[in-house]
Write a protein that binds this DNA or RNA. Sequence first.
DNA 1: GTCTATAGGCTGATAGAC
DNA 2: GTCTATCAGCCTATAGAC
Lengths: 187, 187
Amino acid sequence: MNASPRRKELTRLAAQLFVQEGFDRTTVRMLAQEMGIKSGSLFHHFKDKQEILAAVIEEGTQNALSIAKAALNTCDADPESRLHAMARAHLETLFADRNAHVVALFEWRRLDPAARAHLGHLRDAYEALWVTVINEALAAGIIHGDRFLVSKFILGALNWTVRWYDPTGQRTPDDLADELVAMIMSR
Amino acid sequence: MNASPRRKELTRLAAQLFVQEGFDRTTVRMLAQEMGIKSGSLFHHFKDKQEILAAVIEEGTQNALSIAKAALNTCDADPESRLHAMARAHLETLFADRNAHVVALFEWRRLDPAARAHLGHLRDAYEALWVTVINEALAAGIIHGDRFLVSKFILGALNWTVRWYDPTGQRTPDDLADELVAMIMSR
DNA sequence: GTCTATAGGCTGATAGAC
DNA sequence: GTCTATCAGCCTATAGAC
């Protein structure tokens, strides 16, 4: 896809508005104003509003994937460390990198079927990382249960942080990852 | 508040549409059609669209509160049973009772400030039940960790089921509650 | 309590000048 | 690449008849 620096910058601004207001309530006029242009000019960069959403979600998922891979490559090899690295990476793309991954998770249903099909593979690649790490943890016996349900519960707990966690407060994403891993590990 | 049977019925239908389409994308015309009336007639029952949302969220939260209380009154007294009863009741209001509780959780931010203030107490009452049960579980030593974070993680795992769980499939809400409780309990 | 008709505003998107 | 100007459609909500 097109990835001019200008388009990347606009995508970043769009992500911010989509998180604040939600995709449906964000108008092309709001987007244009945030970008310092008029609404008509927006359609020089994106074919329509849907394409902006797809661009944001693509970036958010791509980013989550890269950061998670990097985290797995630099952390210790034991299953607990790898689980912790994934949880921390997930939280960091949600709150530090910022916005685009949140949109990917919360506005996925607003994608039209074509975009959903296209971006599905990227999303699957990210989820596959989780599956791997959770399988390792199950095999090592540090967590127990149905692998499907355990995955969904862990990701649910992480994703829902968007609704309550204040990244400017006392707790760091690392603290949250610690607590989550501790909560699910058998002792 | 007004609670005529007619209004209750309309609220139930609105909840269904809000879950399917999201509040923002649901138009008063769609609501009216689902109710078998014309859009103008809707405003005889509700002052505006916001009031419909408030009615749905009030019912969803009220319902979750009643069902959770009932579950706690009939389950065994040990902390594990009580935790399980809460998880199961939460899932049942999400998937069996249906829709209104989902709207309360996922469209809360769309409430205007006045409604949010008014319904905040109801929501707090429901969360207070969770706090009690989680405190009991922590005190009994069957789970461990920061009480705030543990609460948020558990509710996050439960709430996110809305995004992936198929209630017509193999697993029952009871199965899910079993797995979740097993996942977080120390052994 | 429901209807018809419509106001008044905002929406996403286009065309063509610069 | 951005602007101005604008279209056609849809939105919430209201007014008044039945």
